[in-house]
Nucleic acid binder design. Structure first.
Length: 746
DNA sequence: GTGGAGCGATTTTTT
DNA sequence: ATCGCTCCAC
């Protein structure tokens, strides 16, 4: 240790105060600094705390300087959180950390060694849309039936190969038989070639190129070996093969065992479908001989009842390292996990709504409640119900900011502004708004560009000059190119914020949305405003675009007093006082797809998902299953999920609500219970609104106010009753809504 | 080049 | 049922 940080070492014997309030296992996980270490961190056992304290401990004990620790996470959110907490522990923000996602760290490394794979260090990182667009170009000349073999499917095959660390040369013929008549390998090779020509990378390439460089250039690898003294990995159970290879290259140096610490939980491995290999964590001790293993099993989050139910459930899995959660607090007895049987999915939504109202009225904050579903289609029933009873919610997940069409369009404009040779970006916006360039026009442009070996923008200029573009397209394109040219010229003088704003204005892009009559157009304009605002946080356009490519998220307005609806996958890492777990039926959860093709492994993963769901709850977990559910338009009867049976009965309170459910159903449909009568259901909904004891407030929306609603669009208030409005929506017709769901428009 | 009709798919999501 | 995408006719 030539250069301790900070200079003063913590004296042995006296434990420094950042270690004081940790339990013995947590301390072991932190103080076992040298050699390979696997920390099996059960849900709610203080994983992040261990990770960040360990990081701080390595620094404060003088074992390494900040830039000698490599700390890897999966999401930007996790990286950000870690950075903040380390800063808090050290009392000051630390600069120059190698702390980030696998992909951002690889991007950073790859910029230094890009030339080894034929890229220049200014390579661009493509988003999913660009990838598909490029792949389509590669597929096109090959006479492949894109009905049978859609580009997305081929992209999936390629990505899987990349996940496994296979460059086109490394893909064996045998690997490439099933999909697209065995042409995937050629397509993959072409696609990679085109990426290099464009000086671009997709996400998989960041890992693939960097791993390939380290594999084939021992000098580069040695450099990183000298550089990184300690490696920390979060969520190790989610690593795929390429991430594993990348880590192993960095960790397995010749002299002595590596200081690699992987933190994870095999029971929370739920991402095999995107390439994650649970085996990586199961195999850790064999991969790193002499590894220490620390189990964190004291849970400080949930009640004893919840932990008992979750542990009993996960014990049905075979493939696991084995861990049992114990309550960390003595007072954590709690209520039993409730299992509620209902008649159909409408009853389920109604039941959840009623429970939520009760909790809300008892003073439990809605922000501490969540509905966790297996699949996206389940959210709709709950949304409708919550709108009816007027409980504010938000659906977490959905499309994120940078995935929205208008944001991607605007970013494409910026990319062309900053890099005229960015063909994929230019292709995206050349006809947005409509400029009279269709498929054939674009083909001609491509032909010209390829023939002259120039970017598309240059091809446009040449073809305009040569009079090869006619009619309306000619004027529009000339105007567009002039606009880009002018903006590019103004950029250094006026700054990127002003110029981008002008570009979006003068190119006609903003006008396109202003003229759009659809209900979500105003929201899109707001998003664009937000995007331009975010631009100001960066010094240059290039810096902003790099950030966006890697960090595809913005801080969502958290909306404090709202309950959350999200998928179980989306809930991983979060916690709530109260968690609703609806749809525990065979075919929904576990999902039909898994039952059909996932085998025993798939089922175990579904069970882990159930385990993740239950362990999100601090105080209350409410599981429900319906006897009948509408799937893709028709009603189907369903039996309770096997996971319900697997819950240990001593921790469960089953509300045998089947009687009431059947009664409700009988009232609704005298002949066949399985086909509920929607009209009655709707009337019941209205009754519920008026009998609800949610206090009515004074509303700020007098009759005649023009309002906007996220789901229903524009409308005019026709009557007011406390905080409940009746609004005549222009598109959706008359609806009753709660005032918090609409905003006034002028 | 644009817009409408018909077709098929429809778990989970990050970077 | 619903949405998104492709194909075809104007």
């Amino acid at each position: 240790m030539d250069s301790p940080f900070p200079p003063a070492r913590v004296p042995d014997g006296d434990a420094p105060d950042y270690l004081a309030r940790l339990n013995p296992e947590q301390r072991a996980a932190i103080e076992t600094t040298d050699g390979p270490l696997l920390v099996l961190a059960g849900a709610g056992t203080g994983k992040t705390r261990v990770l960040t304290t360990r990081f701080a401990h390595i620094l404060l004990s003088g074992r390494a300087r900040p830039n000698q620790i490599l700390a890897v996470t999966f999401t930007n959110k996790a990286a950000r959180e870690m950075r903040e907490r380390i800063g808090a522990l050290l009392g000051a923000p630390v600069e120059g950390l190698w702390l980030g996602t696998f992909h951002s760290l690889c991007a950073r490394m790859l910029r230094r060694h890009a030339e080894y794979v034929g890229l220049s260090s200014s390579f661009t990182i493509l988003d999913t849309d660009d990838q598909i667009r490029l792949l389509k170009q590669v597929i096109e000349p090959r006479r492949i039936d894109t009905k049978r073999w859609p580009p997305q499917g081929i992209m999936g095959v390629i990505q899987r190969w990349k996940d496994r660390g296979l460059t086109p040369q490394r893909v064996s013929k045998a690997e490439d038989s099933d999909f697209a008549d065995g042409k995937c390998r050629e397509i993959y090779a072409d696609y990679q070639k085109r990426l290099i020509q464009l000086n671009a990378c997709d996400f998989g390439d960041l890992m693939l190129h960097m791993t390939e460089i380290m594999r084939t250039h021992p000098d580069v690898l040695a450099q990183y070996h000298r550089f990184f003294r300690y490696i920390l990995v979060d969520e190790y159970q989610d690593t795929n093969t390429i991430q594993y290879l990348w880590l192993r290259l960095l960790a397995q140096r010749g002299e002595g065992p590596a200081n690699i610490c992987c933190v994870g939980d095999d029971d929370q491995s739920i991402y095999s479908w995107r390439g994650a290999e649970v085996e990586n964590i199961l195999r850790f001790e064999r991969d790193f001989p002499g590894a220490h293993v620390v189990r964190l099993e004291r849970n400080y989050r949930s009640t004893r009842q919840i932990l008992g139910a979750a542990s009993g459930l996960i014990a049905h899995n075979e493939e696991r390292l084995g861990k049992t959660l114990h309550p960390g607090r003595e007072d954590a007895e709690g209520e039993k996990v409730r299992v509620i049987s209902v008649w159909d999915s409408d009853d389920e939504a109604r039941m959840v709504g009623e429970e939520l109202e009760r909790l809300h009225n008892d003073g439990h904050p809605l922000s501490e409640c969540a509905i966790l579903v297996r699949a996206g289609f389940q959210t709709r029933a709950f949304e409708e119900r919550l709108i009816t009873i007027g409980l504010p919610y938000r659906v977490v997940g959905g499309l994120r900011f940078y995935e929205r069409a208008e944001i991607r369009d605007a970013l494409a404009y910026m990319r062309v502004l900053s890099q005229p040779s960015d063909d994929l970006a230019f292709e995206r916006i050349i006809n947005v708004p409509r400029r009279g360039i269709g498929n054939t026009g674009l083909q001609k442009l491509h032909l010209h560009a390829r023939a002259r070996d120039i970017p598309l923008t240059a091809a446009v200029l040449e073809m305009l000059a040569a009079g090869q573009i006619k009619g309306r397209a000619r004027e529009h394109l000339a105007a567009l190119m002039k606009c880009f040219g002018q903006c590019r010229e103004d950029l250094p003088r006026e700054g990127h914020v002003v110029v981008v704003e002008r570009l979006l204005e003068e190119s006609g892009y903003l006008d396109m949305w202003k003229a759009d009559k659809s209900p979500d157009a105003p929201g899109r304009l707001d998003n664009l405003k937000e995007l331009v605002r975010a631009l100001a946080d960066f010094e240059s356009l290039g810096g902003f675009l790099e950030h966006v490519a890697l960090v595809m998220e913005t801080e969502e307005n958290a909306g404090n007093e709202r309950l959350s609806i999200m998928t179980l996958h989306g809930a991983k890492g979060l916690e709530f006082d109260t968690v609703f777990l609806p749809g525990w039926e065979e075919g929904v959860f576990p999902s039909q797809r898994t039952l059909d093709e996932g085998g025993a492994k798939g089922l175990e993963e579904e069970r882990r998902l159930a385990y993740v769901g239950i362990t999100r709850a601090r105080l209350r977990a409410i599981i429900s299953h319906a006897a009948n559910r509408r799937i893709y338009g028709n009603w189907q009867s369903a039996i309770p999920s096997r996971f319900v049976e697997e819950l240990p009965p001593e921790y469960v309170h089953a509300t045998g609500d089947a009687t009431r459910a059947r009664h409700n159903a009988a009232m609704r449909s005298p002949v066949f219970g399985a086909t509920p009568f929607p009209v009655v259901a709707r009337r019941r909904a209205v009754v519920d609104v008026t009998t609800s004891d949610t206090p009515a407030r004074k509303t700020a929306f007098p009759i005649g106010t023009r309002v906007f609603h996220q789901k229903f669009g524009y409308g005019t208030v026709t009557s007011v009753e406390g905080n409940r409005l009746e609004v005549a929506f222009e598109k959706a017709g008359p609806k009753r809504v709660i005032d918090t769901f609409v905003e006034q428009v002028s």
